[in-house]
């Protein structure tokens, strides 16, 4: 995996941070479709996407890639809780995006999301609902 090449192709300015568990890279306005297309061409595998609430209204999404045995973590922020879908480019993202929609209410542009782990009648954004869990674990 050539970090410099990725950097040039995706037009990123910030430098990555290299750690034992892979290369971490936060990119403010990452073009996720472009990223997915480029990485898939280079035989990378999308491991998963992690969503972390960032402030009240946004989510940080980390795209974890396996580039021939090396880990690459590219993160970006949603804009208005929306981000482009990569499911059309990378079928593996289909279920992942549906789950993130269920749990964090992120809307993926360019695709329909039907509930995956929730039932059709449940509202999305379960993990944002701040369900108080007491010590006994009851809701």
């Amino acid at each position: 995996m050539n970090v410099e090449e990725i950097r040039q192709t995706l037009g990123i300015e910030t430098p990555p941070s290299q750690r034992t568990d892979g290369i971490w890279w936060h990119i403010a306005g990452l073009n996720v479709c472009h990223m997915a297309q480029y990485l898939i061409q280079n035989e990378a595998r999308l491991i998963t996407i992690t969503a972390i609430p960032d402030g009240k209204s946004e989510c940080r999404l980390i795209y974890h890639w396996d580039c021939q045995g090396q880990l690459l973590h590219l993160s970006t922020l949603t804009q208005g809780r929306k981000i482009d879908s990569v499911a059309a480019i990378c079928p593996a993202a289909d279920w992942i995006e549906r789950e993130i929609h269920d749990l964090f209410g992120v809307i993926f542009n360019g695709r329909e999301t039907s509930p995956l782990v929730l039932r059709a009648s449940d509202p999305s954004g379960l993990f944002l609902a701040n369900i108080p869990l007491d010590e006994e674990g009851k809701e």
Partner: peptide, 24 residues
């Protein structure tokens, strides 16, 4: 994936299991 804000509880833990990608 584990994120921490320095407290005793994790900020977020993400679990990606093999079946999740194999099942589709």
């Amino acid at each position: 994936y584990i994120a921490s804000d320095g407290s005793e509880k994790p900020l977020r833990v993400k679990v990606r299991t093999p079946s999740f990608v194999n099942m589709p």
